[in-house]
């Protein structure tokens, strides 16, 4: 509770004042955020329901183990921690901007709004990298017809099922077409052009021997719903981040132009701040549901 003492017996509901002691705009922002919380909650609970109903859900430590410029190093939780700290930090700069607004310090508001916008943009950049990495990833998985194929993670398919035993993989290789065997052999050399030419001229059995003797891990295809939920929910959150960055840019420009100083208060910064913190709040739960557990 604020340090302002509110006299007992104040008649909040007798008209002429806000019974909640806040402006109309702020109350409506709170109610919008509450409804948005239900939207996100419904998405996440629906995801949980489907995840609970499937025997082998994708293991997040297996799916999200990459880091930019780290090649094929196995780094579970690392990149998403970076994204989480970026968002927490941009939340701090936002609340500092609100604080400077309370002090009517125009320069301070400008500085912290810029930092918040940079934080939001950095988060979006991270998400763009992560999506690209999943959508263009190449992992060997066994399709329903018993042949092996190189799969990315999309809303229609993903390679995040249970691991195949070596024997299962060798059996599946025998049924796999020449074209797919070449594609699998290419993943061993990370798509090097010369290796591709060499692989095309090999016979099926030579390719099979090469693949079977390699360190390659093949899996079953994963639950199809995984991609839809992951891209749907992180996309919906990412769109909130994007619109939050746009709102913050507008707030920065209005601060710079002196609109709030003329108005005598920085309440618009507080309302934009509520939205921005909500975006951080949702990420806390997305982080929990998709990456941690």
């Amino acid at each position: 509770m604020g340090s302002t003492a509110i006299p007992t017996g104040t008649k909040w509901w007798s008209g002429g004042k806000s019974p909640f002691n806040v402006s109309y705009g702020k109350v409506m922002m709170w109610y919008f955020l509450m409804s948005d919380a239900f939207t996100f909650g419904a998405f996440l609970i629906s995801y949980g329901t489907i995840r609970f109903s499937v025997n082998n859900w994708a293991d997040p430590n297996h799916v999200f183990n990459s880091f930019p410029f780290a090649g094929h190093a196995n780094l579970p939780l690392a990149f998403v921690s970076l994204m989480t700290f970026i968002l927490i930090f941009s939340s701090v700069t936002m609340v500092l901007a609100v604080h400077e607004g309370h002090q009517m310090n125009k320069k301070g508001v400008e500085k912290y709004m810029i930092l918040t916008i940079i934080g939001g943009a950095a988060f979006l950049g991270c998400q763009a990298w992560e999506w690209t990495h999943l959508l263009t990833g190449e992992h060997v998985a066994m399709l329903n017809d018993g042949t092996l194929s190189v799969l990315p993670t999309t809303v229609k398919m993903n390679p995040w099922g249970a691991a195949l035993s070596h024997k299962e993989m060798v059996d599946a290789l025998q049924k796999t077409s020449h074209e797919q065997l070449v594609a699998i052999a290419n993943t061993l050399h990370h798509g090097a052009e010369s290796a591709h030419h060499a692989a095309v001229s090999l016979t099926n059995q030579e390719l099979i021997n090469q693949i079977a003797s390699s360190e390659i891990h093949a899996t079953h295809t994963g639950p199809i719903a995984f991609g839809g939920y992951f891209f749907g929910i992180t996309g919906f959150h990412g769109f909130h981040v994007f619109s939050g960055v746009i709102i913050n840019i507008i707030m920065y420009l209005k601060t710079k132009l002196g609109h709030f100083e003329q108005r005598g208060h920085y309440e618009m910064i507080e309302k934009a701040g509520l939205y921005w913190h909500f975006v951080d709040l949702v990420w806390v739960f997305v982080f929990l549901c998709f990456y941690l557990v």
Binding site: G2, S3, T4, I6, T10, G16, K17, S18, N21, V22, S23, Y24, I88, F89, V92, V95, L96, H99, G101, H102, Q103, M104, N105, G264, H265, Y266, E267
Partner: peptide
Amino acid sequence: MSAQHYENPEITFHPDHSGGTKKIWKIFW
């Protein structure tokens, strides 16, 4: 740099915002 003043007649009591940023950084940690 006087503290801001709402012209809004709906608001009866203004919370005290004169405090520093110590609490914000504490929550960050």
